[in-house]
Amino acid sequence: MAKTLVQEFTKGLWAEIPPFRLVLGLCPTLAITNTLENAYGMGVAVTFVLAFSNILISALRKIIPSKVRIVAFIVVIATFVIVVELVMQAYTYALFLKLGIFIPLIVVNCIPMGRAEAFASKNSIVRSALDGLGRGLGYTIALSVLATFRQVIATGAITIYETPITLFGPAFEPFRFLVEAPGAFICLGLMLGLMNILGKK
């Protein structure tokens, strides 16, 4: 059962990739994957929170009494979320405006909480850090893939940084439906199906 350190990192990229395999953290997955910029912005924010909350919780795992562990985890996670919020406000305000409420909502996202409870509170600091980084990166990749698919088909453009880049000529007929809320569900469904087909042995 014991995984090597490399496996600890790579499991989050494919085998246990958060939104597709664990089916956790779906609220932002559906809501903000309308442009690529939003998706990786959110991914980076979650990765930061995951990595640092995992490290800190793992470091404190022996001194946090088990009866109040959930409260302690929430304090730690909320602290890092506010750090992300302040930094985003100070340096990437436009992106902060677009992601809006979903940044503070990382506190109640199941991924950091789940990793704190299931992994970081039982494992060493190095393993917890790798676990957090791996899953955060996996989450970022997953959101980016979903967002690229939705944005390209729905608008014929891709936003890498601030301004959208048009990919097709004027003959392109945008399929706006995919950036609306129902389109998000359909795209996520297709992704999950695809992942299941690819994962079948």
Binding site: L60, I63, I64, P65, K67, V68, V71, A72, V75, V76, A78, T79, I82, V83, L86
Partner: peptide
């Protein structure tokens, strides 16, 4: 123990923020 640990974590968090 519970009170001390939670107070410590909250204080550190508050100071950092």
């Amino acid at each position: 123990n519970m009170v001390v640990v939670l107070t410590g974590i909250s204080l550190a968090s508050g100071g950092l923020l």
